[in-house]
Design a protein around this nucleic acid. Structure first.
Ligand code: MN
Ligand code: MN
Ligand code: ZN
Ligand code: ZN
Lengths: 157, 157
DNA sequence: GTTGTTCTTGCGAGACATTGCAATAACAAG
DNA sequence: CTTGTTATTGCAATGTCTCGCAAGAACAAC
């Protein structure tokens, strides 16, 4: 585990990572629009996770004309470019992981909703077992481990 | 793994399992209604997994007056009673696991959508590690392992 | 700067799921 | 069977996300 996802101040490395997003789009023949600029701006100020709806909300706070479908479509594009990666929380809502530097699984407390990241190292044994016995290749970014953290009681059976 | 989820014929044991659902409801002061009877009937003919929307669909096929919210609310009740358990597929949609005899995790191919069950035994090492290092208690029913089965190519990076 | 190509956006509709509220019906008690 | 309690339903509104389509804008080429 690498600790709960917080809201640390933006590091220079992270700022740099977003800087070439425009370039990355153009290299693929995609376009740089005001809508995308705003979305990238908001994402650059986000660390850890954000839901689709939250992102729409934060964009709308800066530009009341923000359209939901545009935001979701932009997220699709950014996911293809590797700037975000999404999965679905235990309530089924989309959760975007911003700037996933290394592929990792998610551990989530069903009690308080806290989330942690889980590295390949921690999942190695399970992944190797699945691959050896079933030829199944685990995609760590699509692994979600639900459970309860020390402070949260599991509901009575 | 215990193999892909199919549609085997209903076994006597399974039929019996549903038989006391009415009893189970009454013991809790809950009521036996035509709507619930129909939903239980459809579930009893289902093996493996079914999405919420699919269940609504199949109920509506038998009774055109079926209301979606009633079906979803009944599923909530049945989940509390242990007759079904739900998680969310990789598209975020609800997936109900019918009559979960033992708590188990799900393994899903992101290519073809096939799903398998994963037992405690297979997840033991990971669960023990999380508990020992973080005091985190894994809830196996809320574990979802995404990846690719032997026949399905992972998309190019 | 003008023009043309085609990627994007806005907008409306729709699928899936949840929720509040008032009307209804199940059930126990008499 | 009648009555009272309250769980349940139907319905409509809401939230989240997706999709098709036509109008609009970005970009490259001239
Ligand atoms: Mn759900
Ligand atoms: Mn999704
Ligand atoms: Zn917790
Ligand atoms: Zn597959």
């Amino acid at each position: 585990m690498t600790g709960p996802t917080g809201s640390e101040p933006r590091s220079p490395a992270v700022q740099v990572a977003w800087a070439d997003a425009r370039e990355a789009l153009r290299e693929r023949g995609l376009r740089w629009t005001p809508q995308r600029r705003l979305i990238l701006e908001v994402l650059a100020e986000t660390s850890g996770h954000i839901t689709g709806a939250e992102l729409v909300e934060r964009c709308r706070a800066r530009d009341g004309a923000t359209i939901g479908s545009t935001v979701y479509r932009t997220l699709d594009v950014l996911e293809e470019l590797g700037y975000v990666r999404h999965s679905h929380g235990s309530d089924g809502r989309e959760e975007y992981h911003v700037l996933p530097l290394a592929e990792h699984a998610h551990v989530r407390c069903l009690g308080c909703g806290a989330a942690w990241d889980l590295s390949w190292e921690d999942a190695r044994e399970l992944a190797e077992r699945l691959e050896a016995r079933n030829g199944f290749k685990v995609a760590l970014g699509h692994v979600m481990i639900g459970g309860y953290c020390p402070g949260c009681e599991p509901a009575a059976p």
